[in-house]
Design a protein around this nucleic acid. Structure first.
Length: 383
DNA sequence: CCGGTTCCATGGGGATCGAG
DNA sequence: CTCGATCCCCATGGAACCGG
């Protein structure tokens, strides 16, 4: 297999794919960001979180809903779920899906329909397709996912997600400048990411004069709970107490290395800023990202041909419509990616290193997420 | 000049709306 | 319903700028 560093891959993409743009290297860098997003999405999907997942929802800051941030991936409590079998002509629009729901099972009167299509007539799938949302703040929204297609019959799963998530994922990437060891641009994005990571959850991070990190959380009736961060986090994980959980959001950052960031002890400032801001910071290694790109784009004799085709059709001066992003993806490419990730789940998990918390593993991250997923959110939010 | 911060051009995505 | 326009948001990376 051809191995390239990510920098080499960026140059290959710049020269061969993005040569039509004014700044090919920048556009290639942007597309590597898309790859990180796609890898993260299919990882979450192969963990079985698809029905809980929303993409690019606007989330309010804790205690300050005036300010909102669009968050890449968020995991929400599922309030209700139903399946629909469906054999109409493409596209599968929100209107068609909503009209096929049994209203006795699932009341949709409080919802406002979206204009999204789950599957377009030229087979572009919309991941975590938002079909309707409720107008009231912090209520819920409906997400549709395509389970499978057989003989023009479509099985669709519709999940009603509670608006307030229990976990979020954000993907970031920073590139190295040609011939320069350390760039100026990364710190700004690190700070932007850090700001969002620190503003969404009720669990606030506080530094003691000694340097020790504490967690602070307001309980009901104005009681403040403050204790060492790791201890408080463990308590939240164990807890079913609504006042600890109702506004808690586990924040996860996914970063990828591009020359000036290191997985070694040699963390630079940007990485330190992010590591202390997210609850979890995981690092997609060069090896992982290169392996993915080599497989889907550069391997000439692979069965990833439809994935490669979708990518090239998306980034091309004559392109009609993008079909290779975390949201809109070519249906065939999606099927291949799903299979690839579920068949190679252990390998994919090994593409990541955990940077913080120190000495934790991807398996522990996974188990924390499932622990949260399985809490009784109806009770916690008194629904 | 050095090592940083701030600014900004460019690429891209999603939601929404209105014309056809 | 479809498509394009528009608005808003975010990411990437290079240039300008600044204090010592």
């Amino acid at each position: 297999m051809t191995y390239h560093s990510v920098d080499q891959l960026q140059n290959i993409l710049a020269n061969n794919v993005f040569n039509y743009t004014r700044d090919p290297k920048k556009a290639a860098g942007r597309s590597l960001g898309t790859m990180v997003e796609i890898i993260t999405f299919y990882l979450l999907k192969s963990w079985g979180l698809e029905q809980s997942l929303s993409i690019e929802r606007s989330l309010a800051e804790y205690g300050n809903p005036d300010i909102t941030h669009n968050v890449e991936y968020s995991l929400h409590p599922i309030l209700q779920q139903c399946e629909v079998f469906f054999s109409e002509k493409l596209p599968i629009t929100s209107t068609k899906i909503l009209s096929s729901i049994d209203k006795n099972v699932f009341s949709i009167t409080r919802f406002e329909k979206s204009n999204n299509s789950l599957l377009t007539s030229d087979l572009i799938l919309r991941n975590s397709c938002l079909i309707a949302s409720s107008k009231e703040l912090y209520s819920s929204h409906l997400v549709a996912n395509l389970a499978f297609i057989s003989n023009d019959d479509y099985k669709i799963i519709i999940s009603q997600q509670y608006e307030k998530p229990y976990a979020i994922f954000e993907c970031k990437r920073v590139g190295i400048e040609e011939g320069i060891k350390k760039g100026p641009q990364s710190i700004e994005k690190a700070k932007q990411g850090a700001y969002v990571a620190r503003m969404l959850s009720s669990l606030q991070k506080v530094r003691m004069p000694s340097g020790e990190l504490y967690g602070l959380i307001y309980k009901f009736n104005n009681e403040i709970c403050i204790k060492p961060y790791a201890e408080l986090m463990a308590e939240i994980m164990e807890s079913e107490n609504p006042s600890l959980l109702c506004d808690f959001i586990l924040t996860v950052g996914v970063v990828s290395n591009h020359g000036n960031w290191f997985t070694s002890d040699n963390h630079n400032k940007e990485l330190k800023v992010l590591a202390q801001s997210y609850d979890w910071l995981i690092f997609l290694t060069d090896k992982g990202l290169s392996e993915f790109i080599n497989h889907i784009l550069l391997d000439s004799e692979s069965n990833f041909e439809p994935v490669k085709k979708a990518f090239l059709e998306s980034y091309n001066i004559k392109r009609k419509r993008t079909r290779f992003t975390k949201v809109q993806i070519d249906y065939k490419a999606d099927q291949i990616l799903q299979l690839y990730f579920s068949d190679n789940l252990i390998g994919v998990e090994n593409w990541f290193n955990v940077i913080s918390p120190k000495d934790k593993s991807m398996q522990e991250l996974k188990s924390q997420i499932f622990r949260l997923k399985n809490k009784n959110w109806r009770e916690i939010h008194s629904l």
